[in-house]
Amino acid sequence: MLSEFFQFTFSGVTLGAIYALVALGFTLIYNASHVINFAQGEFLMIGGMGTVVLLEAGAPLPLAMLGALLLAGVAGVVLYKLAIAPAKKANVVTLIIITIGASIFLRGLAQFFWGKQYHALPRFSATESISVGGATLLTQSLWVLGIAVVLVVALALFFNRSRLGKAILATSMNKDAARLAGIKTQTILTLAFGISALLGAVAGVIVAPITFTAYDVGIMLGLKGFVAAAIGGLGSSTGAIVGGLLLGLSEAYTAGYISSDYKDAVPFVIILAILFFLPNGLFGSRAVERV
């Protein structure tokens, strides 16, 4: 019984860590620009597929990963420069459509140049899985969890300690005031998109050995990441992580204890329930509408 519980928990935490990483990317961009970036999932795809392609071209694994991360970072910057920045006066829905257009565009490119096949990446450790309390845990899950923790801590330090991080926060709170204080908001926004893309690509690379990767993996993971970010309250890093874990665990427990038929509906029921009582998510700040 207990081993069963452990098994569901491992599964849930692994899924949750993946969702949390995607959600963090959403949060970062949302914080800096108040854009919901529906192309976030494509950065994961670029991370995973980029690594696969470079590996096949003969690059060693670490180099292939690095190359893929770079590629994703560039894609993030280009996305901002070419698609988001020119649409200055656009409203919320228009920006959503732009990012959706970008995600279709990137997915299309990946499909054209890299093919439609699913690929598996080799796991990072030699051993496949370890046994804990009667349940099995993939070593790759430990990698996912470990890297997720490192990234979260690094991001927290970055925003609270470094000047650059503080500048991003300042830009998100009040763009005009930040500009008056001498912050180059354009550079800051570009940076936010770049970092967010990198973050997504890291997630894409480390989960590919578990989930496989292909040109269209970004759709589902992007959507789940958005849900996780919204559960936590858009714009809160803690919220993104809690939201991701909550999402992963609820999926695993529903599939394990209740019914696998409706497990995919559960995250959405949860978010509707949360929004019903807390219209700004779990950790979201109360939005104040200016008149």
Partner: peptide, 19 residues
């Protein structure tokens, strides 16, 4: 048991079958 074709983990369902 069932799963969504896009799922990335089905250990929960398989654990139920095993048990």
């Amino acid at each position: 048991e069932t799963y969504n074709p896009k799922d990335t983990d089905v250990t929960a369902q398989l654990t139920r079958i095993r048990n």
